[in-house]
């Protein structure tokens, strides 16, 4: 029973990792940009939610704070893309990597300066601490369950956006061929900024559960980037549902590792990733083309 519980917890943890990964995957898919500051932006979003929650009347709940953080994070993504990342778009991979690495350092140290290195947690207002007892020895927390459900909803929503709407069509066209996309009247720079804004809104959702599930501090961003990256690669580039499965695999590897020895949690997650990379370099669900 203990192992069943471990695996269930791992799958639910995978929902969180899929939320981390979705924004990263979106930005790579549309503008071929790998954002090394992705993890730090998630942590930034968590602090934005903390601040908003403290400004709201007590008891109004973190979900309201999340909703208010969405436009803020959209603005952060939009501004980052227009102000900096759009200027790094050409064949060379170095400029975007250096610029986002620079932002990683700036965000991390900026948060340290403002919020100190103390670890924090989002305020709980009731439902977050509840849990369901499924069977003897297995109880599922409300937060992990809602987190997983959120990942499914976010991914389903993004898939609808990408495959069923006009702007999604423009995303796919620009990803295929930015120059020809301009001939359709698509301003690819503005489109990229919108995509970055959407990716940051997903980061805000991820940040909510980051802050509800565990303590966080300004320095944990890079580790979230690595989990996100692992989920994307394991799932296969270009498939958001694959990313969800990838997140679940990393999550289960971590909880199983932690079950054997608590110090092994992160290590087993990384090792699972490396093994899959060796066995299936293109991930479990690669896109058929290319």
């Amino acid at each position: 029973m203990q192992w069943v519980d471990t695996i269930i917890q791992g799958i639910l943890l995978g929902g969180l990792y899929a939320l981390y990964a979705t924004g990263l995957s979106l930005m790579f898919g549309i503008m071929k940009l790998v954002n090394l500051a992705h993890g730090d932006l998630i942590v930034l979003a968590a602090f934005v939610i903390v601040v908003l929650a403290s400004l709201l009347p007590p008891g109004s709940g973190v979900v309201l704070a999340l909703l208010l953080s969405l436009p803020i994070m959209f603005g952060v993504g939009y501004g980052l893309q227009v102000g900096f990342l759009n200027r790094t778009l050409d064949r060379d991979i170095l400029p975007p990597l250096i610029v986002t690495f620079g932002f990683s350092i700036i965000i991390q140290n900026g948060l340290l300066e403002v919020f100190s290195a103390d670890s924090r947690r989002l305020p709980l207002t009731g439902w977050e601490s509840a849990s369901l007892s499924v069977a003897s020895g297995i109880s599922i927390g409300t937060v992990p369950l809602v987190c997983f459900a959120s990942a499914v909803v976010v991914i389903a929503g993004l898939n609808f956006l990408i495959y069923r709407t006009a702007i999604g069509r423009a995303f796919r066209a620009t990803s295929d061929d930015p120059e020809t996309a301009q001939l359709m009247g698509i301003d690819h720079r503005r489109l990229f900024a919108i995509a970055a804004g959407i990716a940051m809104m997903v980061c805000a959702v991820a940040a909510l559960y980051l802050g509800l599930r565990a303590n966080f501090d300004p320095t944990i961003g890079p580790a979230r980037l690595l989990y996100a990256f692992e989920a994307v690669i394991v799932g296969g580039l270009g498939s958001l549902w694959g990313t969800l499965i990838g997140g679940m695999i990393i999550g289960v590897a971590q909880t199983v590792g932690a079950q054997i020895n608590p110090e092994w949690q992160i290590l087993t997650g990384h090792l699972a990733f490396l093994v899959i990379l060796v066995v299936r370099p293109r991930g479990l669900f690669p896109k058929s083309e290319g």
Partner: peptide, 27 residues
């Protein structure tokens, strides 16, 4: 509007989607 050399269709879009994206500018 330019019909580029080599057609340059969007490979991940269907024929109809390729046509629809042509109307993106809303003219």
């Amino acid at each position: 509007s330019l019909v580029p050399e080599g057609r340059r269709l969007f490979p991940s879009l269907s024929v109809e989607e390729n046509l629809q994206i042509g109307g993106y500018s809303g003219r």
